[in-house]
Design a protein around this nucleic acid. Sequence first.
DNA 1: AGTATATGCAACTAAATAGTTGCATAATAA
DNA 2: TTATTATGCAACTATTTAGTTGCATATACT
Lengths: 103, 103
Amino acid sequence: MPTAEIFRALGDPIRLEMVQRLSSGSSYTLTSVSTNLGISRQGARKHLDVLQHAHIVVLKPHGRDVFVELEPATFDAAKEFILNVEKQWDRRLAKLKLFVEED
Amino acid sequence: MPTAEIFRALGDPIRLEMVQRLSSGSSYTLTSVSTNLGISRQGARKHLDVLQHAHIVVLKPHGRDVFVELEPATFDAAKEFILNVEKQWDRRLAKLKLFVEED
DNA sequence: AGTATATGCAACTAAATAGTTGCATAATAA
DNA sequence: TTATTATGCAACTATTTAGTTGCATATACT
């Protein structure tokens, strides 16, 4: 899964809200994740498609309703990217400091 | 800065590439960040606008050229979000485990 | 002074996104 | 069985995005 697609999926207030609900709440079906977001059920459903394609979420049909579950493993790629950028940036600054200090 | 906007800015392969260059490389001007991306200078410039509005990057004009610098502090919001989701998710699983085990 | 370089700004197009409404269907509840 | 609920699918619109080209301008180099 390309990192950009994960970030892209997280790059929307409604989808972030969904993720937050899923991470903290108990059990969620499609409708329960989709209510009180200020948009229609079908609108919300499209957002869930985005999260699903980015493997942030898994949909598990169960009788008449569909349960939505978070897939926390996916966050690791995003986390790694950020941590790496910060690490490399720190190294840059360290090198720069050495360069400035040498004379 | 809303978290979603930061994620959104990172949610594109070209912008991710720019960020990676900036985190590791030495000194970058607008043109040097914008070359070898497969798009035109003006196309790349628009991506830099996105990164700038999300405060991921700062532009510092200097004579005829403009230097581009990373703003690593901004990544903290994104990192916090991810860490929080993972933490809450772990708590959920722990609680669930307790619930299942109790009888 | 004249040329080359780094950048900015604007107009335009094609494609993707976010959202809607309407209708259909399968599973549950009364 | 009839009504209700959870969902799916499709068509449609408005807006945003990604990219382009063309032209203007200011700084730097020779």
